[in-house]
Simulated assay, not measured.
Amino acid sequence: MRVLHTADFHAGRNLRGFDRTPEIQQALTEIAGLARSERADAVLVSGDLFDTVNPSAEAEAAVFDFFLRLRDANIPAVAIAGNHDSAARLHSVAGLLGWVGVQLVAQPTANPLDMIRTVETRGGETLTVGALPFLSERRLVKAADVLGGDVGAWRQKYREGMGFFLRRLAEGFQPGSVNMLMAHATMDGAVPSGSERTMQFDLLNAYTLSPLQLPAAAQYVALGHVHKPQQSSEMPVAHYPGSVVQLDFGEGGEKKQVNLVEVEPGRPARVIPVPLASGRELRTLRVTLDNVDARLASLEGFPGLVKVVVRAPSGTALPGLKDRVLRRLPNTLAVELDAVQEDLALPERRREGLSLLDLYERFHQERRGELPGDLRGAFREADEAARGEEEGVVA
Rank of each mutant, 00 (worst) to 15 (best):
E262C: 01
L375M: 04
A217F: 04
G123P: 02
R138E: 11
I24A: 11
S92W: 08
D72C: 01
G98C: 10
V191Y: 00
V102S: 12
L203S: 04
H239T: 06
T208H: 12
V141P: 05
V43W: 06
E160D: 15
L44M: 08
D41N: 11
G17D: 12
T29V: 08
F64P: 00
A170T: 08
P265G: 02
K256P: 08
N14W: 05
D248Y: 14
N83T: 04
L28Y: 05
W154L: 10
L305Q: 06
G124L: 03
P319D: 02
G161F: 00
A88K: 08
A81M: 10
Q26I: 00
L321V: 15
E348R: 13
A35M: 09
M235D: 13
P303D: 08
R89C: 08
V274S: 04
T52A: 09
A277W: 00
R71I: 01
A277P: 01
D65E: 11
L97R: 07
L326V: 12
T332F: 01
A312M: 07
E262Y: 00
R89S: 13
F363C: 03
V245M: 07
H10D: 03
P265L: 04
G392P: 00
G101M: 08
A217M: 02
N14A: 01
D338P: 07
A131R: 02
G152M: 02
E251S: 13
H227V: 05
L104W: 10
A334H: 09
E120R: 06
R36A: 14
M235Q: 10
L337K: 15
L169E: 13
L113K: 03
N291A: 06
V119K: 07
V178A: 07
D72A: 08
V287Q: 06
N259H: 15
D338N: 13
R349W: 00
G152T: 05
E391D: 09
V45F: 08
L127W: 11
F50T: 06
E361T: 15
R139G: 10
K256E: 01
F249H: 12
D188M: 05
E58N: 13
F249Q: 12
L318I: 11
L359A: 12
P211E: 04
M180V: 15
V105M: 11
D202F: 01
A94H: 10
V63T: 13
G124F: 03
I116D: 04
